[in-house]
Design a protein around this nucleic acid. Sequence first.
DNA 1: GACTATACGGAACGATCGCCCCGCTTAGCC
DNA 2: GGCTAAGCGGGGCGATCGTTCCGTATAGTC
Lengths: 185, 185
Amino acid sequence: MAERPLRADARRNRERVLAAAAEAFAERGYDVPLDEIATAAGVGPGTVYRHFPTKEALFEAVSLARVQEHVADARARATAVDPGAAFDGFLARLADEAGRKRDLPDALAGAGAEGVAEAVAELQDALGVLLTRAQAAGAVRREITVKDLIALLKGMLYVVRTAPEPELRAHVYAVLRDGLRPPAG
Amino acid sequence: MAERPLRADARRNRERVLAAAAEAFAERGYDVPLDEIATAAGVGPGTVYRHFPTKEALFEAVSLARVQEHVADARARATAVDPGAAFDGFLARLADEAGRKRDLPDALAGAGAEGVAEAVAELQDALGVLLTRAQAAGAVRREITVKDLIALLKGMLYVVRTAPEPELRAHVYAVLRDGLRPPAG
DNA sequence: GACTATACGGAACGATCGCCCCGCTTAGCC
DNA sequence: GGCTAAGCGGGGCGATCGTTCCGTATAGTC
């Protein structure tokens, strides 16, 4: 165990690779060749493999960071005075982020990764709090489960990713938000 | 021009390839190796290329058929007495179909194909009729455009494709349907 | 049944890409 | 400054896959 600390250059390179990968995956999805990520990081492919055993592992590392970011966001909103607004705020931020990060839907899908699945579970918990509170406040229909919600979010992210027009996005968001409200009649 | 008619075996093989491709794309998306499609069709890869200049062309042919199927469906519902029900029916059928056809979202996306884009335009027209009538009947909120609707449909198809549980699908459908209704207040 | 254009099958080519190896460089330490 | 282990780079291997080529088979025609 007792992991020896990384050499300074190694740590720097690891970070560069992560940053380059985050950007590359965000812009072009999982399909970017690994060599391109390496080049963007100013590093050889071998170096990437020194830090991440596999391309998928690299993707997972990036996904993990992405998901955890939103876990933190959800937690931060968990105690807001207005549960409905807190819920909406989370959705809005997620939608906004998705416009810049092509890989967000895939990250949420987990792709069968160990650590990411755990983070998604955390996200479920954190989102569950937001959801339950919003439901209790009458801002969201009651039969929706956290799983439903995450599925819907993935759908929204997918739409946003393939449709850059802000107006269209706004409509999609509005439909989702209103669809989540308790039915009128 | 004056295309000479295909030889009998050629026409049979062409059809087999199309059928095999439709099934393969439906189940596994665009990523199925072409050789597998050929094998499933009981044909060599060369034969596939005799009928379709490129793998993408084959995919487009399949997509075209898929989209046209729904164009026909939309048109058939255009004159129904209850515009709201007609609209709902179209949505429901589309959602149902998506469960069995992984490639439907991509087909709708058009993927930059000549003929498919045209079919999607037709779908827009046909859907536009359904939409306008549903809006006039007060069954769908007015600010939604056909483009919004198609984007939302793509999102729904994506969700359905990645989530096999029927209950979850039903919830997603319900949220979408209710989100499309005119807001209560 | 023979002839020919059409079509078929599948081996092989080339490009792409994930991943590994190994000789060279360099950080960390005395 | 010298020593050593950690780290680096990039050439290259192997697998996958789209596509092509060409010798063989067969439908269509007389």
